[in-house]
Design a protein around this nucleic acid. Structure first.
Lengths: 121, 121
DNA sequence: TATACTGTATATGAACAATATACACGCTTG
DNA sequence: CAAGCGTGTATATTGTTCATATACAGTATA
C-alpha cells in the first residue's frame, strides 16, 4: 500500500489519507482482508501523529471500507464487486454534481465543459 | 445584486459570498463602478455578522474585483473585458484541473467523464 | 456641528486539525 | 502465566479558522 501527504494541499492530512485509501479500495487495488499498516507504523512512516492516522482509519471504518480488531489491526472490509461499484458511482456523481454547479454559476455550457475536459485531461 | 447563503453548504459563509459576487462580476452582471451593498446593510439583510461580510469584501478586494473608499462604500473595479476573460479562464481551468485529478484518482477515463457530464448537466 | 451613513479594529467564543503521552487489549514466548 | 511487544484507544493541550458583538474612525450633508 502506498500513500503520500501533500504539504501544499489545503485538505487536512487525515482526509488526504482517507481519500487515497478509499479510492484504492474502490479500484480493487486493496482487497478484502488486507491488513492496513498499523496506526503507529503509518504515523512514523508519514511523520505525523498517531491521532491523525487514527482519524483517517476511523473515517474509513465509518464508511464501511475497513473494520478494526483491537489489539490486532485494521483490515479491508468484505465488499462485493457490486458494493464497490455502487459506492464509487455514488461518490463520483455527488462530486461531479457539485463541480457542475460551479461551472454553471460561472456561465459555462455543457459544450464548454466538455471542451475543457478534452483540453486538460 | 442578489446573493444567497446556503445553510447546508460546507463552505464558509464569507467564501460563498465571495464566489457568488466574483462570478457575477466575471459574467458582467455587475459592472465597473457599481456600488456594493454596504457591509452593514448586507449583514442585516443576510442576518450574519458585519465581520463575515467584511471578510468577503476584503477577499474581493485582494483579488482585484472591487475597491474600497472608507466612509463611502465598496465599488466594482475597472476591469476591461479582456481582464475579465483572463481571470475567468484562470479560475475555471484551475478548478477543472483539480476536479480532473480527483476523477483520475478514481480511475475514470476521459470518455467516462464526458459521459457523466452529459448525463448530469 | 450634529447625525447618519460608510468601513475598521479589538476582544471573544466555538469548532476543528494536529499533537504528545499515557492507557488498554491480544498475542507470543521464556 | 507473566513479561513484553505489538495492536488500537482516550485524555488533555496547542494553534488555527469561522463567526460574533461591540466599540472606533472616516465622509458626506442637513
Amino acid at each position: 500500500m502506498q500513500v503520500y501527504i501533500s504539504d501544499t494541499s489545503e485538505k487536512p492530512i487525515y482526509q488526504q489519507l482517507f481519500e487515497q485509501i478509499s479510492s484504492q479500495i474502490l479500484k480493487g487495488e486493496l482487497q478484502s482482508g488486507f491488513m492496513l499498516p498499523s496506526i503507529r507504523g503509518a504515523a512514523k512512516e508519514l511523520r505525523v501523529s498517531v491521532i491523525t492516522v487514527k482519524k483517517a482509519w476511523e473515517e474509513l471504518e465509518r464508511n464501511g471500507f475497513i473494520y478494526t480488531k483491537v489489539g490486532k489491526g485494521c483490515f479491508v472490509a468484505n465488499l462485493t464487486e457490486n458494493d464497490l461499484n455502487k459506492k464509487k458511482n455514488e461518490i463520483i456523481e455527488q462530486k461531479m454534481s457539485k463541480d457542475l454547479d460551479y461551472y454553471k454559476r460561472m456561465g459555462l455550457k455543457e459544450a464548454d465543459i466538455i471542451e475543457l475536459v478534452r483540453k486538460l485531461y
